[in-house]
Nucleic acid binder design. Sequence first.
DNA 1: TTGAAAGCGCTAACAC
DNA 2: GTGTTAGCGCTTTCAA
Lengths: 324, 324
Amino acid sequence: MTTQKDVAEKAGVTVTTVSRVINNRGYIADETREKVYQVMEELNYRPNAVARSLSKRKSDILGVILPAVYHPFFSSLLSYLENYAHQNGYKIMLCNSQMEAEKEKNYINMLRAQQVDGIFLASHTLDIAKEIKVDLPVLTFDRQIEGIPYICSDNFKGGRLAAEHLLAEGAEELVYIGGSLELDLLSNQRFKGFKETVNRKGLKVKKYQCQLNSFDRQEYKKLAREIFRNKRKIDGIFASSDLIAAAVIKEAENNGIRVPDDLKVIGYDDLELARLFRPEITTIRQPTAAIARRGIELLLKAVEGEEVETENILDVELIKRESA
Amino acid sequence: MTTQKDVAEKAGVTVTTVSRVINNRGYIADETREKVYQVMEELNYRPNAVARSLSKRKSDILGVILPAVYHPFFSSLLSYLENYAHQNGYKIMLCNSQMEAEKEKNYINMLRAQQVDGIFLASHTLDIAKEIKVDLPVLTFDRQIEGIPYICSDNFKGGRLAAEHLLAEGAEELVYIGGSLELDLLSNQRFKGFKETVNRKGLKVKKYQCQLNSFDRQEYKKLAREIFRNKRKIDGIFASSDLIAAAVIKEAENNGIRVPDDLKVIGYDDLELARLFRPEITTIRQPTAAIARRGIELLLKAVEGEEVETENILDVELIKRESA
DNA sequence: TTGAAAGCGCTAACAC
DNA sequence: GTGTTAGCGCTTTCAA
């Protein structure tokens, strides 16, 4: 491994000088600078980021904790997060908590030990609040924790838009199907916005929830089955993700129920995939790229010690396609 | 920030002792150990991983370079990689190359600077070979580079199985649709295996390739359109991914072609999603979890200085569902 | 414009 | 069993 010292010796200067040209700090003679560059090139030298981190007490690494990397929404979000982080000279350390509280807790400690400069936390476990008392910048996604800034899409509005659309299309027997409402995720506001809007029309909403901590096709399918086992003729469904919507639509058609003729279905997220299904899924678009960009922006602001807005709610919109 | 020194002082010992209890190395009096643990607890102390890495010249970090994190195959692979790495006490630094050669090259250098212990590289750029001359363990996925071990699914067999199945189902006008064959990816063997098997029956294969560096629904759609614009009545399609298969099926049905009655379609990967589509996609299952597990295993072997098998080809199987 | 030297927090001989 | 000490490779005063 070639070090600054090797470069220094070969260039006939000291490590101080080499460090200076690398960081472009202080006065250096052009000649010296050239020489040093040249030697670095010759030796194929790369500064040791670990040593640098230790010395500067800054790692230029951001931790990202996600509940399920394989879920298309989160992998899309992750892709954007990585992208914006990279644009700002930061690296990503990835943690896939798989919705296990213990794992999540360990990850937080691990990231702390790793001296990451900040953490983007999409937590899906119950008692995260007390674990998160760390001394470094944290931004949560879809979750509100005392004293920690958060970012999310306007879940409430999303629910409202979905309701308004289904009602406008004449649906009257309405169902909400989504993840467990026990976790105090902000995405539960989707249900709230939906329900309130529907209730205001004097109608009711029947709700179906997944098991706690599940992002699972089997689970979606099971739930969809339940819905159609019901006697009552459902004509409008709001699913809290496009994947759930797809599973519901599939199950409906298996039961001879035509979408959108007999039943209207609206999803959430607007995954790239939403347009690969037939019918194409009408959905509430979550501004994934903007969430990531803003998220990184906020985190980096916090890293630099600036004050950061606590509440960051990004707008959503209804994307009308074929399923509703 | 609380350091070993703080712990040592409060516990009335030296840093050596603290280090010893942390690493559980050498003789320590039970009493001392207890005391140290207790103080660490009180001070909520976490060893600084950066300092440790510098000292031990080992980071316990693995770099993962992927062409497109948002693609369901890669996000699934990533999820497993993270999982197995974590099980082995390693962390993941994520790089999303987006198929840009320059970015990939920078990432390799970055990971080197970061002192990662090994790199899992799924490269999708043309001239990676000469950039990859690094002194640390590398494992490539779906790509064979002189002197570097690689892992992949049995792409050739996958192509053969797809062909055999389509032929057995009576298809005669066959099409292959997939990513660009210009990149020397091992996944091109899918085409080779398919073509050879079909040719052996005296039949021909028409091939459609995506643009270089594209994992894109629009692109898939465009290609699918081309296929059906053709006069000849196609009756069997092998798509190099389930996503492409889904796009093709959708386009077919838009053209009044029924799948599987008029046209049989086989995908590749066996994404979880393959079963959310209607018809459910018949596909070649790539053993994603096994690839990740084996991949991490190989990489860690290499990290420990052991010799590693160069060629690691994992078996595939045909999953018969509805589309063929 | 450059160098000497201390220090970042931890590990690991070696000594006692 | 425990402490002393010399690094790991880099940054950063301070001095020259």
